[in-house]
Design a protein around this nucleic acid. Sequence first.
DNA 1: GACAAATGATACTTTTATAGTATCATTTAA
DNA 2: TTAAATGATACTATAAAAGTATCATTTGTC
Lengths: 131, 131
Amino acid sequence: MKLITRETDYAVRALVFIAKEKKRIVSVTELVKALKIPRPFLRKLLQVLNREGVLRSYKGNKGGFLLARSASNIFLTDLMKIFQGPLELNECIFKKKICPNRGDCILRNKVGSIERRVISELGNIAINNLL
Amino acid sequence: MKLITRETDYAVRALVFIAKEKKRIVSVTELVKALKIPRPFLRKLLQVLNREGVLRSYKGNKGGFLLARSASNIFLTDLMKIFQGPLELNECIFKKKICPNRGDCILRNKVGSIERRVISELGNIAINNLL
DNA sequence: GACAAATGATACTTTTATAGTATCATTTAA
DNA sequence: TTAAATGATACTATAAAAGTATCATTTGTC
């Protein structure tokens, strides 16, 4: 039972590091040294974050990354969506239509209400809350 | 992000079905017909539930399963522990000691507090709440 | 007692998601 | 010009989840 995968976790750490450096461009080399994340893996993550508009990248020598928006506007749920897909705790059965009684499944309703609360709490956590 | 695996979900359905039959012994054959779960997979699950003291089994012709304890005393968290291991939402990093700052990791603390609430809510759900 | 219908035990295979690697092309400051 | 960076993309490895197969044993019923 894992709410946050390693990809998301690494992304958070990298973003926190970059946020702390304020407006200074930060390279993967620095991040690898500080965070001890496998280099090619981290590169992949950062490229995704760039594509998704969370980071802004600068190519070439002395290049690297900056936050594309303010740290208070990058939420944990944003990262989870990017790396883990839609936020659903109970996709397993519902999605695959195995469930013979989707509508009135009590279990699903109960889990669903817990899900909504978890998501709303996670939605309150932004990068600036983690500095 | 999946709170409940298919194994747990199937187990819940089977237990709910058995609970509804009161004290009548229920065979896998009946369960398969009613719940449309792959037979060998369901058998495996029920054998586990028997070993774990959730079900009681009766061998031989006309054999099958009964609840080993009252439906109000079989909790969703019991099944999750059996099929999904210890209830931790954030095992990923902490466990593997990748995290350079275990103690004061803000992310982990935040997720941890959400985790505790989820577990306590799940702990309130028993089989008899799902009939 | 024979037999059919059940569970017990156990090992195996398949599928999916996660985690990580490798490589070549392109950009850019010095 | 060159070294140090990112972009794009394809590949591999590992682990967890889901599902299958098989043989042994038990037991009610004819």
